[in-house]
């Protein structure tokens, strides 16, 4: 895993709340057994509408998704993150991001940015107006800057586990395996009736 300490990019604004993972990537994409190649599934149903923001040529290459409350609710599918990643999205900014999805984003180096709603609204205003507006996200300090929206070093919420994953870039499994002895000792006193399969 690579360290992610800063993200800078132009914005794709989707002014909708409760964007669920079925919209981010429809279920039929989950039939694949690969881990990449999901970019065409991203918002597949909405992209059939020529007016949808992802079809705006002026937004090509933008890497920061801006959305309404409760982004990523619904199914736990990590395919939603793979679709965002394969489309080259690096960060998602929203007033709130659903729990499971928020935990999934950093697994692929994407930054879940939970920002005060009033600031998100300001970002929407400038980003919808001008596709060139860009935003800088400092993961280390958990701050965001967007000069066009007159936002400078605004703090955002990023939970400690995600922060740790992003800024250290360590493989979480390797990290846990360092605690082999602690795990063994826990296992030696589990309740005797707990189910075992087979």
């Amino acid at each position: 895993m690579e360290r992610v300490v800063k993200v800078r990019g132009r914005i794709i604004p989707i002014r909708r709340s409760n964007i669920d993972t079925d919209q981010i990537i429809p279920a039929h994409w989950m039939k694949r057994v690969e881990r990449s190649g999901y970019q065409d599934g991203l918002f597949e149903n909405w992209r059939t509408d020529p007016e949808f923001v992802l079809n705006d040529a002026n937004r090509a290459g933008a890497t920061v998704l801006l959305a309404g409350e409760n982004f990523g609710c619904g199914s736990s599918r990590e395919h939603a993150v793979w679709a965002l990643r394969d489309y080259r999205i690096q960060a998602v900014i929203a007033p709130s991001i659903a729990d499971i999805h928020r935990g999934n984003l950093p697994q692929e180096g994407l930054v879940p940015v939970e920002l005060d709603k009033s600031y998100v609204d300001r970002l929407f205003e400038v980003a919808e107006e001008d596709p060139e507006v860009d935003v800088q996200i400092d993961i280390l300090h958990r701050t965001l800057t967007c000069a066009s929206a007159n936002l400078f070093d605004k703090e955002f919420h990023l939970d400690d586990a995600s922060h740790f994953t992003l800024v250290n870039g360590l493989d979480p499994i390797d990290q846990t395996l360092l605690l082999k002895n602690e795990i063994l000792s826990y296992e030696s006193h589990r309740n005797p009736w707990l189910p075992m399969i087979g």
Partner: peptide, 17 residues
């Protein structure tokens, strides 16, 4: 519910962070 990376983490370690 957990994401696929976490599924892998539990497979390898029987734990989750």
């Amino acid at each position: 519910g957990i994401g696929t990376s976490q599924v892998e983490h539990v497979l390898a370690t029987q734990t989750l962070r």
